[in-house]
Amino acid sequence: RRRHLVCPMNTSPHVDPQKSGHEVWEEFSHSFTPAVREVVEFAKKIPGFRDLSQPDQVSLLKAGTFEVLVVRFASLFDMKDRTVTFLGGKKYSVDTLRAMGASDLLNSMVDFSEKLTNLGLSEEEMSLFTAVVLVSADRSGIENVNSVEALQETLIRALRSLITKNHPNESAIFTKLLLKLPDLRSLNNMHSEQLLAFKVH
């Protein structure tokens, strides 16, 4: 039976049919590990993140890494051509990936990436928004909710101030950005369901 890995964190969606499930999993893990490490390095640079307890740092990263990656890799999704670029550098059309078994998650990710890109944020704004995505006090397993909440509020204030300064005539941008947070949660939930299904099979 042909199998495909439609996550762009792979080098290619095509899976060698000779490889065992374990080997496929190992290869997949090898592909996304550097990206996850980059997320951890990014988190370490968020002022105040390293002051949180280590279990809370782990909980935030465990819960938020996917969402951070969605924001960071939004450019892999080209909504004009309706293509997705895999880490191996090759582009695949959304229709091709759908035929390979990609679920509604793919369409949702393309839609999200389009809306985020259309906001035209600078690198600095995107970076601060990513920090807000990661530092969310309502993630499961947080021990010291007050500390995470305090850091989250500081980051949100900084983001609002930066957006207001850079886009004085576009006050809706900040609101639109905050509304992206529940969208990311929803994508994260869909992705978790996919992962469970993938592991089970």
Partner: peptide
Amino acid sequence: FGDPASNLGLEDIIRKALMGNLEERQD
């Protein structure tokens, strides 16, 4: 199969990446 992040080995990668920094701090 209750925790996709753990299944993916994500927690292990995160802990190692965070710990690396702790070791640097101790140095």
